[in-house]
Simulated scan of single mutants.
Amino acid sequence: MTGLRYVYAVCRPFGAALQAQLPGVAGAPPRLLTHHGLVAVVSHVPEADFSEEALRAHRDDPDWPAGTARAHQQVVDALTAVTTPLPLRPATVFRDDSAVRVMIERREEEFLRTLDRLAGRVEWGVKVYVDAPEESAESAESAESAEPASRSASGPDHPRQRAEEFAARLHASLSARADDARPHAPRDPGPSGAAGPDVLNAAYLVRRDASEEFVERVDRARDDVPGLRVELTGPWAAYSFAGEETGEETAEPEAGESAGERA
């Protein structure tokens, strides 16, 4: 079959079968390409859509990257159910099988080291949102002017301050049960205003056998502070921890490769 090779992830050989009739990116089913004791999970994609020029053009179409990312995630999720994958960025493509093998050979030690670090672990995501609307600037100023002098030095006890203190305590508690943690930048709540600003947005690398207790810690924290919403997602493949300990992502564009934007 002609076309480029789309690489979803790298993993160690595994015996379990992938989900039957699993569709991949562009509809082609994923297959396993074994080389040097590692497995690259790949599928064929049309050059017309996945060449460097085509990927640049698709960036102007918000629906195309989103659809590719969903199909990519579906394959990685299926892998996560049967092994520990090292996921690569969506839209990581190579010219042919030989180019994929060359990539594996060049990065073999790095892949093996990272797979050892991720073995038996999954990623959980935790976000804490302020559900109650923020106080307006006018009401905040009024409250501050009414504060007794004894409290003005430390500032008023605003809902945002309480939320940040709660988020710090929760992050410390969850980090103690995780092997690693990666805070992400806060996200804008968006024009809908359905959720207030987040005061915690972090990923946690957790052993599978410790995940039940990790989830219980999140559940126990949900009612600690009124006006906050705690959101738990996962378990996922360890995207946030797929790079080296510096936090760099594993898949970088290189000769013979086109890497699209990560969703």
Rank of each mutant, 00 (worst) to 15 (best):
A149I: 03
A167L: 04
A167S: 04
D63E: 15
N201T: 11
Y8N: 05
E105I: 02
V41I: 15
E110Y: 08
S150P: 00
E216S: 13
S142V: 10
W236V: 03
E138R: 03
E164W: 03
D131C: 13
S43A: 14
V100F: 00
R208D: 09
P148S: 15
M1N: 07
A132D: 14
P226M: 15
Q161A: 04
H72M: 10
L170N: 01
R182D: 10
L232N: 14
A28C: 06
H35D: 14
P133V: 06
T68I: 11
E231P: 09
Y129S: 01
R121D: 00
E213F: 06
G67H: 05
L22A: 09
P13M: 02
V45M: 06
R169H: 15
E147L: 15
A237C: 15
R169M: 14
R151S: 11
A143G: 07
R262F: 11
V10D: 04
R162P: 02
R106Q: 11
L88R: 05
L55S: 08
E135N: 03
A178C: 13
V75Y: 00
L115N: 08
E249A: 09
H44M: 08
D131T: 12
G67Y: 04
H58V: 05
E53G: 04
T83S: 15
A9P: 05
L232K: 14
I104F: 01
I104H: 01
Q161M: 02
D96K: 08
E135P: 03
E110T: 13
D49C: 10
V130I: 12
V126T: 01
A143L: 09
F94Q: 01
A20N: 09
L55Y: 04
R56N: 10
A81T: 09
A78Y: 02
G24E: 03
T34W: 02
H72T: 06
V10G: 07
S211W: 10
E123N: 09
G24V: 00
E212I: 05
A242M: 08
E144F: 14
Y239P: 12
A66N: 08
L200D: 02
R162A: 13
A237G: 15
Y204I: 01
E248C: 12
D61G: 09
G256A: 05
E261N: 12
R106S: 10
T80E: 15
V225I: 05
A178R: 01
Y8F: 11
R121T: 03
K127N: 05
G15C: 05
T34I: 06
P197G: 10
R95Q: 04
E249W: 13
E213H: 12
T34D: 12
A143N: 07
R70F: 15
L112K: 12
L228C: 04
G234A: 08
S258Y: 01
P87G: 03
A163P: 05
L174P: 00
A71S: 12
F241V: 05
E144T: 13
T34V: 07
A146L: 10
L112R: 14
P46A: 13
T246A: 12
L205M: 06
P62D: 06
A181K: 01
G190N: 13
R89P: 00
A140G: 14
A163M: 13
A242P: 07
P186W: 00
W64K: 11
A185D: 15
A57G: 09
E141Y: 12
E254D: 07
A221H: 03
R121C: 08
F94Y: 12
